[in-house]
Amino acid sequence: MFGTLFQSSAVVSTALSVATLAMFATAALAMLGLTWTSERWRVPLALSAVALLASGLEYYAASNIWLAGQQLSAASRYVAWFVVQPMEVASVFFLASIAGKVPVGVFWRTLAAAILMVLARYLGDARIFNPTLGVLLS
């Protein structure tokens, strides 16, 4: 039992399953935390929970795609990042707003930077432009 070697396909599917369970468990804990936190913490906590749920669903879908064909394209990862990044930026903005007034312009600039980061990396990985440029811009 302990001497069994795993095939690489088993390691990938196991890692995706662990990531799925971790995201769902953390999202459940964050949602449970909404019941005992003060009002000012609820918006960033709820946004974090939704981002965790979206990540968990993406890992679940990636696991199913991997198990079906032993291949996984990078496109699903970028779709998840385009969905989750704006929620994470909003969560951090509202979290920072708890400490004091934060100009709305900071939110929009951070959101634009997060989207540019993911878009540049995608365009580089898709070889629409130079991959090194994509990494540097991201």
Rank of each mutant, 00 (worst) to 15 (best):
S91H: 08
A49D: 07
A68G: 15
V84S: 03
P86I: 09
G124N: 08
E88N: 15
M87Q: 08
R109M: 09
M117Y: 09
A51W: 00
T35G: 11
A61C: 04
F107G: 02
M31N: 12
K101Y: 14
M31G: 14
G69I: 00
L95D: 06
N130M: 02
V89D: 05
P86W: 12
V102H: 10
A113E: 12
R77E: 11
L47V: 06
R121M: 08
G33Y: 02
L57T: 13
A80K: 07
S138V: 01
A96M: 15
R127E: 15
V118Q: 09
P86N: 12
A126F: 13
F2A: 13
F82M: 10
L45H: 11
F2H: 14
A27H: 05
L137E: 06
F24G: 00
A120H: 03
E39R: 13
V89H: 05
F107S: 03
S17R: 01
E88T: 15
F6M: 07
L52C: 04
W108L: 03
Y122S: 12
T37F: 11
G33Q: 04
F93S: 01
L95V: 05
L137S: 06
S38M: 09
E88Y: 13
L95H: 10
T4Y: 01
A114G: 15
A49I: 02
K101R: 15
A114P: 04
Y78T: 07
W66A: 01
G100Q: 05
V50M: 04
A10V: 00
R40E: 09
F6T: 02
S76A: 10
L137W: 04
A75R: 13
A96W: 11
Q70A: 10
A27N: 06
V84Q: 04
G100I: 08
Y122G: 08
L72K: 01
M87D: 03
W41I: 14
A80Y: 02
Q7R: 13
L123C: 07
M117A: 15
G56Y: 01
V18K: 00
L53R: 02
V102Q: 11
E39T: 05
V79L: 11
S8Q: 10
V89W: 06
L45T: 14
N130L: 01
P44M: 05
V79C: 06
G56Q: 01
S55A: 12
L57N: 10
Q71E: 15
M117C: 14
S55L: 03
Y60A: 04
L123K: 03
L32Y: 12
V43M: 14
M23Y: 07
A126Q: 14
G33C: 05
L32W: 09
M31W: 08
